[in-house]
Design a protein around this nucleic acid. Sequence first.
DNA 1: GCCGAACCCCTTTTT
DNA 2: GGGGTTCGGC
Length: 774
Amino acid sequence: MDFLPPTDPRVVALTRDLNPAQREAVTAPPEHRLVLAGAGSGKTRVLTHRVAWLIAVEGVSPQSILAVTFTNKAANEMRGRIEQLINVPVRSMWVGTFHGIAHRMLRLHWKEARLPQNFQILDADDQQRLVKRVIKALDLDEDKYPAKALTGWINARKEEAERPEHIQDTGDFAMRQFVRVYTAYEEQCRRSGLVDFAELLLRAYELCRDNPDIQRHYRTRFRHVLVDEFQDTNKLQYDWLRVLAGDRGVLFAVGDDDQSVYSWRGARVENMLHLQRDFLGTEVVRLEQNYRSTGTILRAANGLIAKNSGRLGKNLWTDGGDGEAIQLYAAFNEYDEAEFVVNRIRDGVEGRRRYSDHAILYRTGAQSRVVEEILIRNRMPYRITGGLKFFERQEIKDALAFLRLLHIRDDDTSFERAVGTPPRGIGATTVEKLRLWAREQDISLWAAAKLGQQHLGRSANAVNQFMALIDAIAAEGKDLPLSQLTELVIARTGLRDHYRKEKGEQAESRLENLDELVSAARGFELLPLPQGDDQLPEMDPLTNFLAHAALEAGEQQAGPGEESVQLMTLHAAKGLEFPVVFLVGVENGLFPNMRSIEEGNIEEERRLCYVGITRAREQLYVSYAEVRRVHGVEQIGSPSQFLKEIPSETLQETRPRAQVLRPAFIARESGYGGGGYSRGGGGYGNSGGGRGGDEYPRGGYAGYDRQNAARTLLKESSIGPGGFSLGQRVKHAKFGEGTILSFDGDGDRARAEVKFKTAGNKWLLLSVANLQAL
DNA sequence: GCCGAACCCCTTTTT
DNA sequence: GGGGTTCGGC
């Protein structure tokens, strides 16, 4: 670059559409950079232009570039946009997810990584099942040692690069059991040739750290390492980047500390702070000009996030207009809230909007149900992002288990799944016998089935038939193309017949999915050079297919993102944008979530709120419900504290056109303050709410001034019976200190559910319990 | 061994 | 309220 005049056409082409800050980042000399990229500030653009700049202007070989993202979607998008920019395919460039890159290294260096050549990937679900079996095998109490917790713990250890032998024995009994499980789990994985997600990263890290040749190779090769969403990196990923970059690799990290919402998964925002220490000379570039949202939306977002401490600091601005005020709606309950949203969408669609211009964002997945109900009732097309992905579906995993078993008979995880689906007379007892014998002999289940016939009694026959079936499919399918092999598996194992017998819509979709799997397999027959590389590991189509299934579990829902309203959690919305956004359920306890409040991690919730607000381009609606059913119990809600933190001049309370009514039993109390609360008031059966109108025909409710009540709510926080509020810390003479979770009943029968440290959750009659506010 | 009924738990989930 | 798991009857 040094010698290229700014008028050079290559320079002009790559910089003319950039603002000064973006240009500074893109054209920076080859030194470490941390790009603090605010929401909607053109982060991807900077990343892709930077790569193009390195290649086209700096003359860096694509081979020397490693670009890492977190999602496949981001990786694909990045590669596509880079190729567009410099108009050549850049096959030799490594662009991928952390896991994808790690996987590739392990395939290339499976020997050095001490893995079998045909190792398979264990997804999160498989992993937990395996851990569970290990816990059982060790005869541990599953209540004391829940598989979920142990799996989380093991993954956390791996993310700290801690193997079982690294964990210090403090003499703690439970900890010893944890380590036992970890050790046994690792051994199980080793024998089955399985690698879980965390293990992919850890192995790759150890490989690069401990093998001098490999380390030299990659350090020489990757002169430029670019990382997206840097705030989401965990310790292991960070350490791996350090090893890879060595002394000479140049790091270009892009991220936003204000959008760090995955700390609960091990993400460490602090990594952004450590850059200047570990990558000497790292300079920070701030991208603060926002191209997405209106000035009002940005002011709201800036105001809210300013309440967080320890930020790197950033203030979004736009040279566009202020736009509309943010509309705040105080709903009576979650049905009312959903109706409000649907009515606004209808208004939009009757105007210039499309359904797909609207996104409904919520804190927890369970909130989608009511919204869906109302959408369906109003015949609006919608699409939920999140949930089960294609390759995670039961029927697909069933079929894959057989395919994997064809590959590695010693894969116990697949054996256990395949042996019982569809039912073939081999039940829990038989499998348990196999496990016992296998453990005793230290062999796989397959080997145990083969060698331990005498232990099986009358089910030996069924087991033999099962093994014969697998062998037969393997023999018949040996020379078949992958898709035909897949079809063979689905037919011969009886999977198709099994699901054909099932009734209902779900069964139909399962059959369709199985067919879809066959089609998907077809795509892997001609070994598409995955992201083409000079030195690709040789992978047979089946291994390739199975790896793909685990690493890129597929779109979340079949069917294209057609013309439909978009529903998703706030987490799932990160990175996306929509003209109109509805942020629903903005209530204390729900958002910020109770658990986060208890864990003292409210700042992350605030960042999540910031993420939600900054998804909106033109119009943002925020709503909360005064009463909401949670886990089947009605609870009083109060407007989220975040609403008070958003600059009030950006908010405007909206009021339905027709008068909104309120249950008499609440209205009879003065305002909301001493509020009685009664359950069962709001069965929302009659949704007569006609088109276009905002009528809420619920008989028997007295009128009340919604706007006024909402304002009161904004000031005070949820007051329940007896003047206590949700989430409030209280003291009980017998149970000690606790937190109020919910209220129930009124008058003398008013009760509160309180979570105590030692005594657990208790329902206490307020007239009796004599709780002291803390 | 298999299936339905009781039972239990319940934030978020890039790979 | 709902989904996943376990337990008990056939």
